[in-house]
């Protein structure tokens, strides 16, 4: 039977102490400010974990302990919350993240092929991180079916993607430049305007 590590043998020590955990000053201040925004400080859990994740790249045990020490909760409570949500990473991941939507609307527009090409380009399977730090995973509906098939790259919504775009996307990321700038969702007008010019989707892309 695999024995659990023999640490924290006293029940009094279940909440990490600020005295023992070195918390970056910016993170501590951010968490304290965030906690003050709610009637119950625990409400700040998700934003605080997200902030720590941004800082550390993932929710490492140390990152979790830091949040726990400032929020005065147990790390177990935090990982219980974190492991519930898709955007928290409890294992190390790359510095770039690609969430490729593979839900129905994107699937209907060829997301699976784009995902396959992304896997080939990044050089990892779904859920993997490449040696040069690109983390690729499929994702449930990201709420941008108007640009299906689409992906969220480091939080930026990009689409509609073709199989050919996958290569350019990864190249842009590797070159640390703006990814497929002409396909950013935020630059797209509402449908009525966008399609007004008589544009439409045909087999194999927009015309």
């Amino acid at each position: 039977m695999s024995a659990a590590p023999q640490n924290e043998l006293r029940h009094e020590d279940s909440v990490p102490q600020l005295a023992d955990v070195s918390v970056p000053a910016e993170l501590k201040a951010w968490i304290e400010e965030r906690m003050a925004m709610y009637p119950e400080p625990k409400s700040a859990t998700i934003p605080c974990l997200m902030h720590a994740q941004k800082l550390h790249g993932w929710l490492s045990p140390d990152a979790v302990r830091q949040v726990a020490a400032v929020m005065r909760v147990t790390p177990a409570y935090l990982v219980s919350v974190a492991s519930f949500y898709d955007m928290f990473e409890l294992k190390p991941r790359g510095r770039h993240t690609i969430y490729m939507c593979t839900n129905i609307s994107c699937m209907l527009r060829g997301a699976d092929a784009v995902m396959a090409e992304l896997e080939a380009q990044v050089g990892v399977d779904n859920g993997g991180t490449s040696d040069d730090g690109i983390y690729l995973r499929n994702f449930e509906c990201l709420g941008a079916c108007d640009i299906a098939p689409m992906a969220s790259v480091d939080g930026t919504y990009i689409g509609p993607l073709t199989v050919a775009d996958a290569k350019a996307l990864v190249e842009d990321l590797r070159a640390e430049r703006d990814v497929l700038p002409e396909k950013h969702l935020t630059r797209r007008p509402a449908a009525a305007t966008y399609w007004a010019a008589g544009k439409r989707i045909e087999q194999g892309g927009e015309r």
Binding site: P5, N7, E8, R10, H11
Partner: peptide, 9 residues
């Protein structure tokens, strides 16, 4: 539990 620590309570 957190990070495989023992449940000591």
């Amino acid at each position: 539990t957190f990070d495989g620590t023992q449940y000591i309570a």
